[in-house]
Design a protein around this nucleic acid. Structure first.
Length: 412
RNA sequence: GCGGGUGUAGCUCAGUUGGUUAGAGCGCCAGGUUGUGGUCCUGGAUGUCGUCGGUUCGAACCCGAUCACUCGCCCCA
């Protein structure tokens, strides 16, 4: 351990990267607002049970990836590994069932103890949405259309593919699970050791295996869609029709499974091939049972989350930087301070150098991509004027102080 | 948690079969202009060669451990 290194799997977002990160967030939130979503900010840690009881005891996230600790009063707390459970908890704590349907947007750090890789960190950032209180498939359609819209706004439309599946309701899922286990049990000798474990913990995961032999077994396995009951079947059809109407292209993937237990019906992922082993950029699904299971009023919900670092790596756009004006005092330091404040209060972005002769100060102005330099020479100052130099054209003129804001307005 | 690769200036990277003061480009600083930038010229500073230990007369180079990054598995955003 070297104290001068960031903790494994954590990263500093240095100014250039921080700007991209914030821009991605803002683009996403801007689109979400158009769909009526408002921001919710919940704590980054919760009582451990908020996650351990609701994500599923056997899931990887709960069984081996949580940053859990005991605080000074002996409470078991956990740094949030995902956003939905905390939002659901806040929904209940805050009595928000009075405000359904509810559309929430969130963003912020998440924590999972995993082996870091490209696009996979121990502290990473997600943005996501939750739509609570709508039973019908319009909610699924709107939330997925919003996701597609955000990815499009980020210029990623051609880099991602939407994969969709239905996990059915609880009854359908249980039936299917039994059928799948029965099928797999007859072929244990052909399954990888990972998949034999999956059969015990979460049989649906076997469908997702990358092992060649597993894939051959899975190719002939029973399909979820054949086990959907009428209700689930109809719901899935509605979602597909709605997405078609919204103009969102879909790839059906009957092997798409979600990692957390609370999902039902709609499950989806936007995937890319540009991030190595980390193909998922944005993923989510419906979780009708979660809030009731947590002890709140039975409330359906659907949502998704996206990894901001992953989005940021794919995002080609440049975060705009305001071009400042640079003030250059020549033996007029106090006057420069006063003028800088005057211009900042008038809404200009003003930088002042801290040392050096004019040559150095102009060179630095260049480096910060300044639009213009305002030179406070003693002679001009005596005439109540300054020299204004356009750093793009090189043109320079003397401007009376009284007219300064006016003359500078074109450099805004 | 498992397996592979990598680790030399702020950045991108050279560094011959182990041999003495470890290099380049970019960037940075200074000067060429005691009130004028972006180009150009000149000069300068870079560094526990990831860390610790071992082999050797001698290690950036060989060996071991460790840390970090990276690729894949697991899993996921």
């Amino acid at each position: 351990m070297s104290v001068l290194q960031p903790v494994r799997g954590t990263h500093d977002l240095l100014p250039d990267e921080a700007r991209r990160h914030r821009l991605v967030e803002e683009i996403a939130f801007d689109v979400a607002r158009r769909y009526g979503f408002g921001e919710i900010i919940t704590p980054i840690f919760e009582f451990t049970e908020v996650f351990s009881r609701n994500l599923g005891e056997t899931t990887d996230v709960v069984s081996k990836e949580m940053y859990s600790f005991t605080d000074r009063s002996g409470e078991g707390l956990t740094l949030r590994p995902e956003g939905t459970a905390g939002v659901a908890r806040a929904f209940i704590s805050g009595g928000l069932s009075q405000h359904l349907p509810l559309k929430l947007f969130y963003r912020g750090p998440m924590f999972r103890y995993e082996r870091p890789q490209k696009g996979r960190l121990r502290q990473f950032h997600q943005l996501g949405v939750e739509l609570l209180g709508v039973e019908g498939s319009q909610a699924d359609v709107e939330v997925i259309a919003l996701a597609a819209h955000i990815l499009e706004a980020l210029g990623l439309k051609d880099n991602v593919r939407l994969e969709l599946n239905s996990l059915g309701d609880a009854a359908s899922r249980a039936n299917y699970r039994d059928a799948l286990v029965a099928y797999l049990s007859g072929r244990k000798d052909q399954l990888s050791k990972d998949s034999l474990e999956r059969m015990e913990r979460n049989p649906l995961r076997v469908l997702d295996s990358k092992d060649e032999s597993d894939r051959q077994v899975v190719a002939d396995a029973p399909l979820m869609q054949d086990y959907l009951n009428d209700e689930s079947r109809r719901f899935f059809d509605e979602v597909q029709n709605g997405l078609a109407a919204a103009g969102v292209p879909v790839t059906l993937n009957s092997r798409l499974v979600r990692g957390l237990d609370y999902y039902c019906h709609t499950a989806f992922e936007f995937t890319t091939t540009a991030l190595g082993a980390q193909g998922t950029v944005l993923a989510g699904g419906r979780y009708d049972g979660l809030i009731g299971q947590m002890g709140g009023p039975a409330t359906p919900g659907i949502g998704w989350a996206a990894g901001i670092e992953r989005l940021s790596m794919l995002f080609a756009g440049e975060a705009p930087v305001v071009r400042p004006l640079v003030l250059i005092p020549m033996g007029t330091a106090d006057a420069a301070v006063g003028l800088a404040q005057r211009l900042r209060h008038a809404g200009f972005t003003v930088e002042t150098g801290y040392s050096g002769n004019m040559k150095k100060r102009l060179a630095r102005a260049n480096k910060v991509n300044a639009r213009a330099a305002i030179i406070l020479g003693e002679e001009e100052w005596a005439r109540q004027a300054v020299a204004v130099r356009d750093l793009d054209s090189g043109e320079q003129e003397e401007v009376p102080l009284a007219a300064l804001e006016d003359r500078l307005s074109r450099f805004r």
